[in-house]
Amino acid sequence: MSTSAPTQPDYELTHLQALEAEAIHVIREVAAEFERPVMLFSGGKDSAVMLHLAVKAFAPARLPFPVMHVDTGHNFAEVIEFRDRRVAELGARLVVASVQDAIDAGKVVAETGPRASRNRIQTVPLLEAIESHGFDAVFGGARRDEEKARAKERVFSFRDDFGQWDPKNQRPELWNLYNGRYRKGEHIRVFPLSNWTELDIWQYVAAEDVELPSIYFAHTRRVFQRDGMWLAESPWVTLLDGEEVEERTVRFRTVGDATCTGAIESPAATLAAIIEETAVTRITERGATRADDRISEAGMEDRKREGYF
């Protein structure tokens, strides 16, 4: 694919080319107007695509900002390996905001019990890293189709001194004229993939040959069932009564904290097979695989208000 070599008559872009151009425009706008941007990079598919777009935006120059991983300490090994390799390939600088460090320093208290998750407390090291590094713009890979609170979020999303999002007081966003003005202590979250859907991401990954961690593809894994999801066996999860570990052929649709990211049973081991499955699936990726989003009807809105990505 290419934004670059349109083969269609009539000067038309495909939907992927149009989405790519829009995202690159957003990324360049931030690099031009902010002093210290940073791009979140979890190793997940959305952030892998976002990073790919950022590399394209500034080629042949290097990425003009560092990348940051908010590390819950509960990682899939394949994802961390992928993260470190990508960062090294690009010669980029990696900032790690560690949840474990925040816990050790007594800044947050980890949840306990068999259902303990570090998802919500990620916000603390995230905001702390933003403050200590003086980041004024933070790129995130969130998409509006993921969740209904996100469907209303701006591409340039303003955060106050406390990193909070106020959904009722968002800046109007017209044409492609983004307003990135802020005062000291405030920052802007930027979502270049706002208009992409899960299917767009997979189609783009295939068209551009974007590398992803292996756990996105079907593999055999020791898993157990909880709340209708397959969770991976790991040192951080305690089995409840009646839960049994078994081997299944699974893949992940999203990649997050290993304790709350569910796998789906799937034989899809290739991009083509995944795209086919995604095109006919009737359940959203968060509904299928994220225990953390099931907190409440407004779970995401509440966490975002606190400064979550």
Partner: peptide, 13 residues
């Protein structure tokens, strides 16, 4: 990023 192009039109980046 995919190389040189022969022409560019709106809204290409």
């Amino acid at each position: 990023a995919d190389g040189a192009v022969a022409e560019a039109f709106a809204p290409m980046a």
